[in-house]
Design a protein around this nucleic acid. Structure first.
Lengths: 235, 235
DNA sequence: AGACCAATGTGGTCAGACCAATGCTCGACT
DNA sequence: AGTCGAGCATTGGTCTGACCACATTGGTCT
């Protein structure tokens, strides 16, 4: 099944035309039917598969567009796994934590001064937002921080996994962050340890010190776990 | 799109019947059409989506069966990502390595004496097979070893990711292992370091020593990388 | 009893029509 | 001239009913 779909994707890429905004648009289904020599029903079945794999985007009255498969697949996969039983939210959380630990360690080896500057900026934004009581923006900056760590490593697989898992957990993460901030007593200068732990990560990356990064990111999670009481602890 | 599919899956689970071998079998499509009040074409489109997500298994002349989504989704996703460009084999390899590092560390915290015994058994099998020149069996035991580490952690997400990535990399892994064994000079007792590194991992798990496990698994990869010359190195 | 073959049940494909949403065009009105 | 709205064309979404291909089952012939 996979190889056939594979071949189909290749032909579709050929038949697609590039729009002005850079997206690749497929010919209408009725035309594809002629060029691919199959019935519309069969074609639509294949397109549905590709759509569910995140490779296509179909919009009624608009057209069908190619796109790079992304986090959506991972998210739907695990969502449906959850629907079928056998997948608890804390397991998703655990997987994400494990992923972020290695990501951070790997990023520490590769971070450039530009990356460090960007991460510093995001940390500042987070602290400012939190101090101003805008927890929505704080969460956003928090997520952006971790997303940038993934970017540094530059591995598309991590991208997909991180986005997918974090996307699933968005509500959970928001709740965790809120609870941590609510429970915690801010320091003298009004900052929260929940936020300032990020500075340690940035420092480790600035020094390209993988060990320090590992310790810092674990502190990050241990702190949350201790406050919120999540999954398991660390050695 | 996801929520609609979600609901459909729930109804399908209701309509399915349990076979004697424990698998859940769906009614024939023509009957589903009546019970779900949609046309067969539309139903088939949905079923195709679920199949591509690894939730269904359709066999012509046989029937349609429910199954837990598994590694296949991850594998096809990343395979198609590769087909669309933007995903190199070494990136898959890197992701797998990163995943195995955290998996091993986590497993060290949770391993029981039974797990340790099983891992010891697999290591023995691997060493014996290698000594006998049966590299196929050696690879098999090697893969089983790492698969059991995932089992110890007991997180279905890791299961899926590990299986998916290792499945994609099967040929690559075989080549790496073969080259490592070919290049390496065996010790006095005829064992290879490629194999014996596993003993260090087992020892770390027996002591529930997460730090030792991390060091051991990194040695494992560093060794391979040094011999074969793969992706990046370690700090 | 064994081998062969036909009937049946199942998913896979095909064909043509109609429905529904989107965006554009062109005309009426201000 | 500008603006708003009705209508039209395009495109994906659904329905119907027929036929094809594969797998199992049971009967029939040797």
């Amino acid at each position: 099944m996979d190889d056939a779909l594979d071949a189909l994707v290749a032909r579709l890429v050929d038949l697609s035309a590039v729009e002005r905004d850079g997206t690749r648009r497929l010919p209408p289904e009725r035309e594809l039917v002629a060029q691919l020599d199959m019935s519309r029903g069969t074609l639509r079945e294949r397109l549905s598969q590709l759509e569910s794999l995140g490779i296509l985007d179909r919009r009624q009255g608009h057209g069908t567009y190619l796109r790079s498969p992304g986090a959506s697949v991972v998210r739907t996969t695990f969502t449906l796994m959850g629907a079928l039983g056998g997948l608890r939210p804390d397991q998703v959380d655990q997987a994400r934590e494990m992923l972020e630990i290695v990501t951070t360690v790997e990023a520490a080896k590769l971070a450039t001064t530009g990356d460090v500057a960007e991460l510093g900026r995001l940390t500042d934004a987070m602290i400012v937002a939190t101090a101003a009581g805008d927890h929505e923006a704080g969460l956003e900056a928090d997520l952006a921080f971790h997303r940038h760590l993934v970017t540094i490593v530059g591995n598309p697989i991590l991208d997909v996994l991180q986005d997918g898992l974090a996307g699933m957990l968005r509500d959970t993460l928001a709740a965790r962050r809120a609870k941590a901030l609510r429970t915690e007593t801010p320091a003298a200068d009004g900052t929260y340890r929940t936020d300032t732990v990020h500075r340690q990560i940035v420092a480790a990356l600035a020094a390209n010190d993988a060990d320090a990064a590992r310790i810092a990111i674990r502190l990050h999670f241990d702190h949350h776990d201790a406050v919120v009481g999540s999954t398991d602890d660390d050695a």
